[in-house]
Design a protein around this nucleic acid. Structure first.
Length: 271
DNA sequence: CACTTTGTTTCCAC
DNA sequence: TGTGGAAACAAAGT
């Protein structure tokens, strides 16, 4: 599952391996797989470019190229960027950087790559990706969280998944954060007490930090850019553990559908 | 076959 | 206009 930690890892490795290097060639293996406008654009525009910088906002990776060009990579679900791997059935784009290769794989093809100019980038960032703060920066505070939840009748889980409130939290980490905070995913956001908001704030940060430290969650087919699996799935308390006992109280973990997502929680511990 | 998965969009009701 | 719920969409593996 591509979520925050793996994107962090990818960006770090992209910086290390690509910054200042030339992209000599970009091979489009299956042009129809990528958004139609981008495959053409790739072929024409990427050859010989030098990567200047890489940034991350939520699950969107933005690589700055010279001449005010930007490469956007939006990783969703099964999207992967893997260094030094033989291309396979789900490899859609291969970046050749010197002798190194970086594969863009996406089994379900939910993600996309797009090469665009400054105006297009701004358009996308402003109109399509109005991201809230990064959970692990100082922009994210208990006060901000409280303010975002105040007066909202929606279930707390729905708001935590909303990227305009908080960037980069996906289904796994929302479920795990709510478990750690002892809050029921269906609770109306505005009913959270001050102490609960504080607890949730801490839970989100600690879950993400631990997940990053362990290289993310390989619960289905996520792997790191090195191709190795993450190890946070071993620490999942509730995510896809319905029918199993709660590690805290021993009660049964339940699964419901909330905000269109599989939602896992302990009915005893989370109120 | 049904079902799962994510992020986004669309539609509908209030 | 904002809000929230529900459904739809992409694609493919289980």
């Amino acid at each position: 599952m591509p979520e925050l930690p793996e994107v962090e890892t990818i960006v770090r490795e992209l910086r290390r391996k690509l910054t200042g290097r030339k992209i000599r060639d970009v091979k489009i293996k299956l042009p129809t797989v990528i958004k139609p406008q981008s495959s053409q654009y790739f072929r024409k525009n990427l050859i010989g470019q030098t990567i200047k910088d890489v940034a991350r906002r939520g699950k969107l990776i933005i690589i700055e190229l010279p001449r005010r060009r930007f490469l956007l990579i939006h990783l969703k679900l099964t999207g992967q960027l893997i260094f030094g791997e033989a291309p396979h059935k789900h490899t859609h784009v291969i970046f050749q950087i010197g002798r190194a290769t970086l594969n863009y794989n996406d089994l379900r093809k939910f993600g996309f790559l797009l090469l665009t100019d400054k105006a297009g980038l701004q358009d996308i960032l402003i109109r399509r990706f109005k991201f809230g703060p990064e959970p692990l920066t100082k922009d994210f505070t208990p006060v901000y969280l409280a303010k975002s939840l105040a007066g909202r009748g929606a279930p707390i889980k729905a708001l935590l998944l909303d990227q305009t409130i908080l960037a980069g939290l996906g289904n796994i980490y929302v479920d795990e954060s709510l478990f750690r905070a002892g809050i029921h995913p269906k609770r109306a956001a505005k009913t959270l007490k001050r102490a609960e908001v504080e607890k949730l704030f801490k839970a989100i940060r600690s879950v993400l930090k631990q997940a990053i430290a362990r290289g993310g969650s390989s619960s289905q087919n996520y792997v790191r850019t090195s191709g190795r699996a993450g190890r946070f799935q071993n620490l999942h308390n509730v995510y896809r553990r319905h029918g199993h006992p709660c590690p805290v109280c021993g009660g049964e973990i339940k699964r419901i559908v909330l905000a269109g997502r599989g939602t896992h929680f302990c009915p005893k511990c989370q109120t």
